[in-house]
């Protein structure tokens, strides 16, 4: 799974810490998601979608090995 959360975060001018606080996770979790080390749950993906104001598909994409 690939994502463009870093880009979406930059558009909204949010730090990892800000985004983490908004969706109720730790900063390290946001860092891991951005680095594709962790695939978040549907609940977390929908919370991100709410913050970014875009559908989940816009910032999460399946990669060839999924």
């Amino acid at each position: 799974m690939e994502n463009t959360i870093k880009v979406e975060r930059a558009i909204l001018n949010l730090t990892q810490g800000d985004l983490a606080e908004k969706i109720g996770v730790s900063r390290q979790t946001i860092n891991s998601i951005e680095a594709n080390r962790y695939v978040p749950s549907t609940v977390l993906a929908l919370k991100l979608s709410e913050v970014f104001g875009k559908p989940v598909n816009n910032f999460f994409k399946l990669s060839s090995d999924d």
Partner: peptide, 9 residues
Amino acid sequence: KDEDEMVVK
């Protein structure tokens, strides 16, 4: 202290 779904995993 900062428990979230990743920590649970």
